[in-house]
Nucleic acid binder design. Structure first.
Length: 269
DNA sequence: ATGGCAAGCAGGGCTTGA
């Protein structure tokens, strides 16, 4: 089974790329972020026409996530609230669910979680505080999911490079958004401390394996990138991973997303 | 240190992203 994550930077602008990529890479589930479209305006028919089901949680202009799946998914849930609302309080979770950044669904035994973690703007800003609050809620959310089923895959755009080897030039970036110690600690607490494993690092220790390159300054050509799109597998699931690769091809296409897909392969036998 | 590029919304220039 293959599952991919890809921040498409507008599903309407990138619809041809998504269709083309799925034609060449017929993964079972594609998790997309930054769809930037309301549910009413989501271009579902183009996805369905190539044999995929689609589930989405979107809003006007910003954010938005979707699950594109070769088979119907069960228990599709949008936001934190359907999982942890009754535990942490609907009001607490409500504020964090206003921005559409979370959708999950189940394929057989496998819970698939698709995330668009807040960017955070600048270290110390109001948005930065929101990002850290959001990651704290993510921990409660994943802890609850793990109790419901031990087989959980969490993927998406995390807007955090876990280590310095995941940044093209890490010197002096300790106060940079996506690299600050508080963000890395929050990621540690929300994901790794629950036993999740960074799937890409199960297969490669190579530095400078990036998933995002700034549109500006010819960053892609110069490989000035960041590894901020990830797959994490729960402790019971990580042993069945048989590969995790970054596909840089779509980043070379005309008018690309600034992110490129990351694909994980599982041997669920 | 700053800007650089792209998308959305709206029909000009701002906001957001990372």
């Amino acid at each position: 089974m293959k599952i991919a994550t890809w921040n498409v930077n507008s599903i309407r602008s990138r619809l041809d790329h998504v269709v083309q990529w799925l034609g060449a890479n017929p993964v079972d589930v594609l998790c997309v972020q930054e769809t930037k479209v309301t549910d009413q305006e989501f271009p579902r028919s183009a996805i369905e026409a190539i044999g995929y089901q689609v589930y989405y949680s979107g809003q006007k202009s910003y954010n938005g996530v979707a699950l594109i799946s070769r088979a119907p998914l069960e228990e599709v849930r949008a936001g934190f609230a359907p999982v942890v609302g009754s535990i942490v309080g609907e009001a607490v979770v409500g504020e964090l669910d206003e921005q559409k950044r979370v959708i999950s669904g189940r394929w057989d035994n496998l819970q698939i979680v698709n995330l668009y973690v807040p960017n955070g703007s600048e270290v110390g800003s109001e948005k930065y505080a929101y990002k850290l609050r959001w990651l704290s809620m993510l921990r409660d959310y994943l802890q609850t999911l793990l109790l419901q089923s031990p087989h959980v895959l969490v993927c998406g755009d995390f807007n955090i490079a876990p280590e310095d080897r995941d940044i093209y030039n890490p010197t002096g970036k300790a106060n940079h958004i996506m690299a600050s110690p508080a963000e890395r600690t929050a990621l540690q607490q929300a994901i790794l401390e629950l036993g999740f494993v960074d799937t890409f690092r199960q297969f490669s220790e190579e530095p400078e394996q990036f998933t995002w390159w700034d549109y500006r300054a010819a960053a892609f050509r110069r490989n000035m990138g960041w590894r901020i799109d990830h797959h994490y597998l729960s402790p019971q699931l990580s042993p069945v991973a048989i590969g995790c690769v970054i596909d840089k091809t779509p980043r070379t296409w005309e008018k690309p997303s600034d992110h490129t897909p990351v694909i994980v392969e599982l041997n669920l036998s």
